[in-house]
């Protein structure tokens, strides 16, 4: 990779991506409103939310939690940069987990009942989606022979026809990571959902909350980029797969009710994980010389 290429990808990840993420989040809210028979906010609504939060005064978030949330934001940025620069998917997932851990520790640091309760649920969410994402990386490895995202990007054939289960688990992961029904048990970033006030964010206010919103924009792009690895060439097909997963999770969000954390845990470990393993077994059994 040439230096110019590296810098361009870095810029794409750090500077361009949040704007795309902002529009995707806006699209999410617009679509949800349309599904509920409402007009909904303008597409650029998340941007105004962010600016307003940044301009709030007298932040009451504890210093420690603000620092944790800043690390959460940074980890999302670095994860996205790693994917776009063709880095190691496992490393990317570890970095992503770093952010999740920072977010959770921040939530635990505020000793208020809603923060504690929501954060414990957040921890269970992490327990549920983490293995699904690593299995996705393993599945990609079994076909491309490498954990590098660049290998998946340059893989000529689409991976999706051989990894159908992973599309479904990805939709679940979208739901969990973006806190959508039926997985919005820890908190809900938008709309009128208000489970346990706002869980790990109950004691977060103003500019500190803006960090979370911004991190959320990166997160959406990251998830779409991850899903797009399943059909990486041509790249527009991948983008369609990613957007398709996002769309599916939005629809599920609007037609499903919130369920309990124990249901989520059982769904993850008794349905999604075994299903992923089945798909992995298929990939392993039919692998060619590549893996």
């Amino acid at each position: 990779m040439s230096i110019v290429d590296t810098v361009l990808r870095l810029l794409l990840a750090v500077v361009v991506a949040p704007w795309v993420g902002m529009l995707l989040v806006g699209l999410d809210r617009k679509l949800s409103a349309r599904l509920q028979g409402r007009v909904g906010p303008p597409l650029t609504q998340p941007f105004y939310d962010l600016v307003k939060l940044l301009a709030k005064q007298g932040d009451t978030t504890s210093r420690f939690q603000t620092a944790c949330l800043a690390l959460f934001l940074a980890s999302n940025v670095v994860s996205l940069a790693l994917v776009l620069m063709g880095g190691d998917l496992l490393v990317m997932l570890f970095v992503l987990a770093f952010g999740a851990v920072a977010y959770i520790v921040g939530g635990f640091s505020a000793k208020s009942p809603y923060s504690q309760l929501g954060t414990q649920r957040e921890l269970l969410q992490l327990l549920t989606y983490e293995p699904l994402l690593v299995f996705l990386a393993v599945g990609i490895y079994l076909r491309t022979g490498s954990f590098l995202a660049s290998a998946a990007f340059s893989h000529a054939e689409p991976l999706l026809p051989e990894m159908p289960v992973f599309v479904l688990t990805l939709i679940a992961v979208f739901g969990i990571k973006l806190r959508k029904s039926p997985f919005d048990i820890a908190s809900s970033p938008h709309h009128g959902h208000q489970e346990v006030v706002r869980g790990p964010l109950s004691e977060v206010a103003g500019p500190s909350l803006a960090l979370v919103e911004l991190a959320h924009w990166y997160e959406v792009v990251l998830l779409v980029a991850l899903a797009s690895l399943l059909w990486a060439s041509p790249i527009w097909a991948g983008a369609l797969v990613g957007l398709g997963c996002l769309l599916a999770s939005i629809v599920v969000d609007n037609v499903a009710a919130r369920l309990t954390w124990s249901w989520m845990l059982r769904f993850g470990w008794l349905v999604a994980v075994p299903a992923s393993i089945l798909n992995l077994i298929y990939l392993y059994a039919t692998r060619g010389g590549g893996g």
């Binding site: 409103a33 509920q36 409402r38 609504q45 105004y48 009128g192 208000q194």
Partner: peptide, 23 residues
């Protein structure tokens, strides 16, 4: 006001449950 008839989310308004997030 939140229902489809009035839909105040058109103006970006969200009903939040926490004073720390409210304007």
């Amino acid at each position: 006001c939140l229902t489809p008839v009035y839909d105040i989310e058109r103006f970006g308004a969200v009903n939040v449950g926490n004073p720390k997030h409210a304007d």
